[in-house]
Computed example of a mutant assay.
Amino acid sequence: MAELIKLYEENPSEKEIKRIAKVLKDGGLIIYPTDTVYGLGCDINNTKALEKIARIKGVKLEKANFSFVCEDLSNLSEYVAQLDSATFKILKRNLPGPYTFILPGNNNLPSVFKKKKTVGIRVPDNRIAQMLVHHLGNPIISTSIKDDDDVVEYTTDPELIVEKWDKLVDIVIDAGYGDNMASTVIDLTQPEPELIRQGKGSANI
């Protein structure tokens, strides 16, 4: 049974954030708010939790395109190859924000992602997401929770989310209604930025 925890983005309870971070550390799965849609996340360093998410999404873990949700730009260098100044300026200008940037990965990627040459980086403009990553001490692996309904692409109501995901996750954070538009995905591994998916963020970066 998933636990529904109410948090307010303006002033999230640090005690609850720490408790949720411990659940992540122990291999738990959570659904949490971002600056776009609600995300399904786990600790980047917990292989069993990563495998669970891959199973839920119906993908092979080593081929999965999950995002690395970071607190800020300072811990990017742990997982991303050296960036040129133009790329770094784009990141600095647009993050935190509703973007996923595809960047070249480095040798520090967790073993299950070693074969991947690129990594999708997110720094959501959301206090709850940032505090979770801060107290966890490393990025959260994340994927948006798609809806099965062809009309409603993303579920935005935490009450409905907990009904649907009750037996699949440990915690659902209720931070009010989420957005129904995912992040804009931009590939920065080529000489020119390439728009992969238009979402909430402007394509004009």
Results as ranks from 00 to 15, higher is better:
residue 89 K to M: 03
residue 136 L to W: 04
residue 135 H to N: 12
residue 107 N to K: 13
residue 80 V to M: 14
residue 62 E to C: 04
residue 122 R to S: 05
residue 136 L to V: 02
residue 144 S to H: 05
residue 124 P to V: 01
residue 65 N to H: 11
residue 142 S to N: 06
residue 83 L to Y: 12
residue 71 E to L: 03
residue 125 D to R: 08
residue 77 S to G: 08
residue 145 I to C: 13
residue 103 L to G: 02
residue 106 N to H: 10
residue 73 L to Q: 15
residue 70 C to R: 00
residue 65 N to S: 12
residue 112 V to K: 00
residue 97 G to H: 06
residue 138 N to V: 03
residue 91 L to W: 10
residue 136 L to P: 05
residue 66 F to W: 10
residue 97 G to Q: 07
residue 95 L to Q: 12
residue 116 K to A: 13
residue 137 G to S: 07
residue 143 T to P: 02
residue 129 A to I: 03
residue 99 Y to C: 06
residue 83 L to C: 09
residue 63 K to N: 09
residue 146 K to R: 11
residue 81 A to L: 12
residue 98 P to T: 01
residue 77 S to E: 14
residue 86 A to N: 12
residue 86 A to H: 10
residue 130 Q to T: 02
residue 114 K to R: 12
residue 129 A to F: 11
residue 71 E to A: 05
residue 133 V to G: 09
residue 63 K to E: 14
residue 135 H to D: 06
residue 113 F to H: 00
residue 92 K to M: 02
residue 92 K to E: 15
residue 108 N to K: 13
residue 85 S to W: 05
residue 109 L to M: 10
residue 66 F to N: 02
residue 132 L to S: 03
residue 131 M to C: 05
residue 90 I to Y: 15
residue 94 N to G: 02
residue 85 S to E: 14
residue 95 L to K: 08
residue 84 D to Q: 07
residue 81 A to M: 07
residue 123 V to R: 06
residue 93 R to M: 05
residue 116 K to F: 08
residue 121 I to H: 01
residue 119 V to F: 06
residue 70 C to M: 13
residue 147 D to L: 03
residue 92 K to T: 03
residue 67 S to L: 14
residue 92 K to A: 05
residue 147 D to T: 02
residue 144 S to G: 09
residue 126 N to I: 00
residue 70 C to H: 15
residue 72 D to H: 08
residue 113 F to V: 01
residue 100 T to N: 05
residue 83 L to S: 11
residue 73 L to A: 12
residue 140 I to H: 01
residue 99 Y to S: 05
residue 63 K to F: 09
residue 143 T to V: 15
residue 61 L to F: 06
residue 144 S to K: 03
residue 92 K to C: 00
residue 97 G to M: 04
residue 74 S to H: 11
residue 130 Q to P: 04
residue 78 E to P: 00
residue 122 R to Y: 08
residue 83 L to D: 11
residue 108 N to E: 08
residue 77 S to K: 15
residue 123 V to F: 10
residue 61 L to P: 05
residue 148 D to P: 03
residue 138 N to S: 11
residue 132 L to Y: 12
residue 75 N to L: 04
residue 76 L to N: 10
residue 111 S to G: 04
residue 125 D to N: 13
residue 112 V to W: 15
residue 115 K to I: 12
residue 102 I to D: 03
residue 72 D to M: 05
residue 84 D to K: 07
